[in-house]
């Protein structure tokens, strides 16, 4: 997994609440057996009309937003289906940081398994950052300092220490958990005695 340390980009703002994972990547693209190649289908029904033509007014279809690495969105981002295809599509498009007042639980966790940083900040701060999106000015996210820098201002955000470390170091969770095999074996042995039906 690629490390996440600092990221600088003109943010793209999609000012909608409850952006669900069906919206982020519709069902027809879940038939893949790969993790890659989903970027062109990100937000498919908002990006392309029924004949497959680009919808010009959609923000990600326009420069410089088509190269945005940071997405601003309304609350409860990523609700609905557990499909990890949603973060895969964002990542494949080039987005490595999503900023929203709140995230749905499964999507939030999926981000950390893909080197994407989800940041929770209040609505008012989103509106402030949105001005930078409109003016096509860059903002910078510094994970180590837990700061978003914009103009000559900055705001801080919270993140669990373990999740921060994973992103900063690009750690493989499975590798880490496999180091705890002795604990797992001990648990299983005890369970075999107390709950033999499992």
């Amino acid at each position: 997994m690629e490390k996440f340390i600092k990221l600088k980009s003109i943010p793209a703002h999609i000012p909608l609440m409850n952006i669900d994972t069906d919206m982020i990547i519709p069902k027809q693209f879940l038939k893949t057996i790969k993790r890659t190649g989903l970027g062109k289908s990100l937000f498919y029904e908002m990006r392309y009309d029924e004949s497959g033509k680009l919808i010009e007014k959609f923000i990600l279809n326009n420069d410089p937003y088509s190269k945005s690495k940071i997405l601003l969105a309304g609350k409860n981002f990523g609700c609905g289906s557990s499909r990890e295809h949603a973060p895969w599509a964002l990542l494949d498009f080039g987005i490595r940081c999503v900023i929203s007042p709140s995230f749905a639980d499964i999507f939030y966790n999926n981000c950390f398994n893909n080197g994407i940083l989800p940041i929770i900040i209040d609505d008012k701060s989103i509106q402030e950052l949105s001005e930078y999106s409109k003016r096509k000015e860059e903002i910078e996210v510094d994970l180590n300092e837990q700061e978003i820098l914009y103009g000559n201002k900055k705001l801080t955000f919270d993140i669990e220490a373990a999740k921060k470390k994973r992103l900063l170091e690009g750690l493989d969770n499975i590798g880490l958990s496999l180091k705890k095999i002795p604990n797992i074996e001990k648990f299983e042995n005890s369970m075999n005695k107390t709950k033999p039906w499992i």
């Binding site: 557990s82 990890e84 973060p87 966790n109 999926n110 499975i174 958990s177 496999l178």
Partner: peptide, 14 residues
Amino acid sequence: IGTSEVEHVLATQT
């Protein structure tokens, strides 16, 4: 859970 977590469960049962 997401697919990365499916992989984690398959490998570790945790």
